[in-house]
Nucleic acid binder design. Structure first.
Lengths: 189, 189
DNA sequence: CGCTAGCTATACTGATCGGTGAAGTCAACG
DNA sequence: CGTTGACTTCACCGATCAGTATAGCTAGCG
């Protein structure tokens, strides 16, 4: 039986998602076939299709889980974050940069997936939630005295830093973005 | 005879590159086969391979031409730009946003291409050149009185705005990035 | 005239793509 | 005991992938 939601995932589904995440993150989505995902997962192609139904659905599930994990990690950081709390968003992305991959998996997916693909909605929702969270945190940090465009400003710095993970030479743009965000928050206080 | 450089491109090569640019920009690189490129170009697959030798080489040529065209347009804007000149970089990207496509073609390519692909070097060179040009223009605009990290700051805003072309709803992040850059330049003067 | 460059047309290769069918194993559960 | 769910094995489908072979056409040029 196919179970994309509701019931909790079977061992085979988890192994498949783990393998998909590893492969999609590094090689991209179109470059990875279902065959190699199944092999890498130690699972048959039959099981993959019994669990997910199609490659498109697997891609969507991959993006959805990636967002959920990232979001949970962000909330955990926020629970014990020193002021200003917005910086925790940068830290969450910095921590996610440890395991390798060519840049932001959501931006990469957006560049690869065709219009109407179910995964695209997940990407848009993810970015929208991040944008909103940044705006919210800025207002909280500055006690509603934040300049109107400061949220957008920090979000752009964040996205600029994320987009360049895995492209540029040594220079760590994301860390620079965090430092600039810290400055801006201190100046606005 | 294969002519990737030196001699000027044949009509077939130009038609092929035009078609490749149209298709790669919208659908991504792996999602487009050489067959459909040739058909879209009104050219046979044989001609495509006589001109470029392989799909990888065609991808590299596509990215290279894209960079050269963008760079030429930037220099043209800079020749008659009002101060501060850095904003011309934002305008060059804003102008390139007219013809459709999912975000920045260079960031997308970086997400798709495997390690060692010749196109990756073109992407890295492009981004490095943009980064350097932004730094250079900031120093010129502010007569060498620019804060050390202002170049990086504007570059991150730029990249953040570019990365989100084609993802987000209506909101134009790139335009917001330009506005913030204008503010920062005014404040630093 | 003959040579060459740029091109067309068509047919083909082996490999891989996403996806399916059929049959069977095994453990948990009632 | 029988059923059910998760899984394996393996063969198979039509389509598409990048790339090649063979042959012929046409215009410019010496």
């Amino acid at each position: 039986m196919l179970r994309t939601q509701t019931t909790r995932p079977t061992p085979g589904a988890v192994k498949t998602l783990d393998a998909a995440e590893r492969l999609f993150s590094v090689r991209g989505i179109h470059a990875v076939g279902v065959e190699v995902i199944a092999t890498e997962a130690g699972v048959t192609k039959r099981t993959l299709y019994d669990r997910f139904g199609s490659k498109d659905a697997l891609v969507e599930a991959y993006l959805r889980r990636r967002h959920e994990q990232w979001w949970a990690q962000l909330q955990q950081r926020l629970a014990c974050a020193a002021a200003p709390a917005v910086l925790a968003v940068f830290d969450a992305y910095l921590a996610a940069s440890d395991h390798p991959g060519h840049g932001c998996p959501f931006l990469n997916a957006a560049g690869e997936l065709p219009d109407g693909h179910p995964g695209l909605q997940v990407v848009m929702d993810h970015k929208r939630q991040v944008r909103e969270e940044v705006g919210r945190l800025v207002e909280v940090d500055l006690a509603d005295a934040a300049p109107a465009e400061l949220g957008e400003h920090l979000f752009l710095l964040l996205e600029g830093g994320i987009a360049h993970r895995g492209i540029d030479t040594g220079v760590d743009h994301l860390r620079a973005a965090r430092a600039l965000a810290e400055q801006l928050m201190a100046a606005a206080q």
